[in-house]
């Protein structure tokens, strides 16, 4: 293309460009779905092995193939749970966190196949099935997490309408200050409604209210309902309350999306730790009563 000097510059540019490009590739598509193919291959091999290997007396965790699947599954679960450690260690080199995350997602999904074949489809009320069910729940919440990470950030930024979270709170504070002065002429009962609206913490709702976006105890809505519109002061307070409600709706929208984005982790992480505990009990109990 050009002289050697230019070539060096080009290659440095192109490598930097490549890196910049790869920075914007989703972890799901990392390296042309490399880990998806690896996980699919692993699952397929496990299924083929299950169908073709004669497991005596019947397929379950106690045959050599069952032990093999169990060992692979155990190793995968431990490695998958180490993502939490890996992501906190910022280190250079080949330890790409994106590759790790990609592998976490796809290998985690292949665990459904490996774990299920390990059970030999024998399910009961015991510590073994507890570990299996916990594993499925962890994977299900993980799938939810991947889906919301792929879809919700767009609506989160649409909801912001170019405001930062701090600005949303500032806006609410500004409305509150105006409300406080505008409400001065109001009678006792109405003033109390406004005080209740002002006193209510914007973050006060519980997890359920955040996730559903319904706040049945919203004092602002109640104040709006309880306020007459006779005098000019009342009309003004009502208008301000309406503004407050709109601002609250934006903040609550942000809270809802944020909650939907984060809620799975509150199941995924504790259940992962519970799974490791159940897995320990499963492995030890099986050999304790061999």
């Amino acid at each position: 293309m050009a002289s050697g000097a230019q070539g060096g510059a080009t290659s440095r540019f192109s490598s930097a460009e490549k890196r910049r490009d790869s920075d914007h590739v989703s972890f799901l598509k990392h390296r042309g779905f490399r880990w998806l193919w690896i996980a699919l291959g692993l699952s397929l091999a496990a299924i083929l092995g299950y169908l073709m290997i004669d497991q005596q007396p019947r397929p379950n965790g106690g045959t050599w193939y069952g032990y093999t699947l169990g060992t692979i599954g155990f190793g995968l679960i431990i490695w998958l749970s180490l993502l939490g450690v890996r992501k906190r260690r910022i280190n250079p080199g080949a330890w790409s966190l994106k590759a790790w995350t990609s592998a976490h997602v796809y290998l985690g999904l292949s665990l459904v196949v490996i774990g299920t074949l390990h059970t030999g489809f024998q399910i009961g009320w015991n510590v073994h099935t507890l570990a299996y069910v916990l594993m499925l729940l962890v994977i299900a919440t993980g799938i939810y997490g991947v889906v919301v990470y792929a879809t919700l950030p767009a609506s989160l930024s649409a909801n912001r309408r170019e405001m930062t979270r701090a600005q949303m709170l500032d806006a609410l504070t500004a409305i509150d200050r105006q409300l406080e002065s505008a409400a001065q002429p109001l009678a006792r009962g109405e003033a109390d409604l406004v005080i209740a609206a002002l006193a209510q913490d914007v973050f006060g709702g519980g997890a359920l209210e955040r996730l559903t976006g319904r706040y049945p105890g919203c004092a602002t809505a109640r104040a709006l309902g309880g306020l007459g519109s006779g005098s000019e002061a009342e009309a003004r307070v009502a208008a301000l309350l309406e503004k407050r409600r709109e601002q609250l709706a934006q903040i609550r929208g942000a809270l809802r999306i944020r909650a939907l984005l984060e809620v799975w982790l509150f199941v995924h992480i504790p259940l992962t730790i519970a799974l490791i505990a159940a897995l320990t009990a499963h492995v030890i109990s099986v050999f304790y009563y061999w």
Partner: peptide, 12 residues
């Protein structure tokens, strides 16, 4: 500190 309220962790 005020922004922390946006995280779900503040209510769970």
């Amino acid at each position: 500190d005020a922004l922390r309220g946006f995280a779900l962790a503040s209510v769970l």
